[in-house]
Nucleic acid binder design. Sequence first.
DNA 1: ACAATTCCCGATAAAATTAGTCAAGAATAG
DNA 2: CTATTCTTGACTAATTTTATCGGGAATTGT
Lengths: 157, 157
Amino acid sequence: MKISSKARYAIQSMLQLAMQVDSKPLTLADLTQQQNISSSYLEQLLASLRESGLVVGVRGPGGGYRIATDVADISIADILMAVHERHLKRPKKSSYGMSIYNDMWWDLSERIQEFLSQISIADLMDREDVQLYLHQQRLFKDVPLSDSQTDIQRKRA
Amino acid sequence: MKISSKARYAIQSMLQLAMQVDSKPLTLADLTQQQNISSSYLEQLLASLRESGLVVGVRGPGGGYRIATDVADISIADILMAVHERHLKRPKKSSYGMSIYNDMWWDLSERIQEFLSQISIADLMDREDVQLYLHQQRLFKDVPLSDSQTDIQRKRA
DNA sequence: ACAATTCCCGATAAAATTAGTCAAGAATAG
DNA sequence: CTATTCTTGACTAATTTTATCGGGAATTGT
């Protein structure tokens, strides 16, 4: 199925942010390293996501982007609408006798919309391999119990 | 939900063809009259649909385009694939450690694909208003019982 | 206060896709 | 034979997507 790579970038970015343990911000650089895409372009997409309230930007050192709300509350439809925005010009109604075809078209549109609204980021994260990965990340993060070497470890990883 | 107008044209054309009683061919002119679009452009889309085996072209007077198979066997996914074809370049796998995000992405793609495969043209036609319209069309077609004025009537419609 | 980091914003430009046009050719019905 | 209608290919314009650059604003740590 064809979905624009724009949408793919946006969704994959949201996934990366969603999977960040303790929702520590990810920088633009962090995000672009995983997808092969220019950082300036991703920046524009992140701007759209921010304007739609899906992510928040945190400036300054240690900053980056963080997911804005619960991953269960963000649907694929939300993400697509955020990055496609101006593209939603509806065709003018009442052009001759095409109302029937038009109605059928809108019927379909709504079905698709509804379908995509029901798939949340959390749903996509609900896979065995993903859960395993998240588990490992958390293990790795929770290791420093001896409170003597906290940052040194992280640097080597 | 944003779907390209290209897709909309294609789907609406298929709907028009599907709703043709006794599947009498519709000419390019017939099709473009309903949607406000240039005939030459629709021509290209119809060419894609023909190459994908969804419609057949009939040349000569009285010709046009006709739907190729049972409306229950043609899905929205079929139509979208027909007109978007070259656009399906999959991202090269194995780019560093993005396999997890990639997998989640493909998971989603397949879900959408499957969803759209399950919606057939026939499904879209299964609405009260559409059925009523079809019924009226058939009534109008079946009127000439007196076999004396067959073509004259049609011309006035 | 200063320096480094990182988002933020605007303008711009290249590439790809979509949309639209034109003209000549081939098949077919009457 | 002729009018109709699809078929084909080349070409142009508009729009969207993708990409780049540079300066500015906020924040952290020293």
